[in-house]
Design a protein around this nucleic acid. Structure first.
Lengths: 148, 148
DNA sequence: CTCAGAAAGTTCACTTTTAAGACTCATAGG
DNA sequence: CCTATGAGTCTTAAAAGTGAACTTTCTGAG
């Protein structure tokens, strides 16, 4: 299978991966959630080849994950901001961070903590059921075929 | 940056990606959560090159995501089962599916629904705060440096 | 005016990774 | 013996990634 055929699969996971399931893309997104917005900042923080960064950003803009807007004229300079759709990726990012925290943090604990502004506590992300609000684990879920 | 240097980064997301952030790995895991366990079954369902599949499974076993156990002797045949650590990846998978459902499902709706056995309803995964239980969005979170 | 510098890319010449598909090996059944 | 099954390995060919230099459009300093 070629990478771009992935978006034709009848699977939401595959279709998500076609957009963000790339080595660099998730690191770009991580930095975006840390408010990095400019080409050179991404490039320098990640050490990514400029060609690859340009291509990934273009894909993400095309898919509406980032919005490319000028932050100054003369010379025109652009920045990349997460759209609403892009912000919707946060659970994915946070789940990845959380799994890494749990299994790969050293004795000093995880490199970053997350504080929930609303309640004021440091927290972990927990996956919950939209209907009953309880925490959900892999064993509590049954997959059912949809119409598509 | 080379891919294996990723695990040396002081970032939980990068360390997770070093293990599962690969094009194919998340598709393998998707199938694993659908109870696929054998080499040929993975290979056939995914259309992945056998060499790549063998290599990915080996990495995942090495990292304790899968456990490789013989399900018969003479000739010895193995199967790959998710460990507890592997089951912990479910939130990542489900978040990816959910984002795909939300943005790439056609008019027929998503290809797969998930039912919460405990409460009996079809549900979406919602990311919640471990402390107060409320739903958490990107804007509600503040990152704080840890000691590591 | 000229020169240096910034920001956001492009282009080029290679390396490294990935992948497709044939091939191997051990064993079982007929 | 012949074929089938499961779980891989091997060989090439194609795709992706890399680092360095180059481009374009301005600004500000000397």
């Amino acid at each position: 299978m070629k990478w771009n055929e992935l978006s034709n699969e009848n699977c939401s996971l595959a279709r998500s991966l076609a957009v963000i399931g790339d080595r660099w893309t998730l690191l770009i997104l991580r930095d975006a959630f840390l408010r990095v917005r400019r080409f050179d900042d991404f490039q320098e923080r990640l050490g990514i080849a400029r060609r690859v960064l340009a291509e990934r950003l273009a894909v993400l803009v095309e898919h509406g994950v980032f919005e490319k807007t000028a932050y100054q004229e003369r010379p025109t300079r652009y920045e990349y901001r997460l759209t609403k759709k892009g912000l919707g990726l946060y659970p994915i990012i946070l789940s990845l961070v959380h799994w890494g925290d749990e299994h790969y943090a050293g004795r000093k604990g995880p490199p970053v903590y997350h504080r929930h502004k609303t309640c004021g506590h440091r927290f972990r992300s927990v996956m919950c059921c939209s209907e009953c609000g309880e925490a959900v684990g892999a064993k509590d879920v049954m997959a059912e075929a949809g119409k598509a």
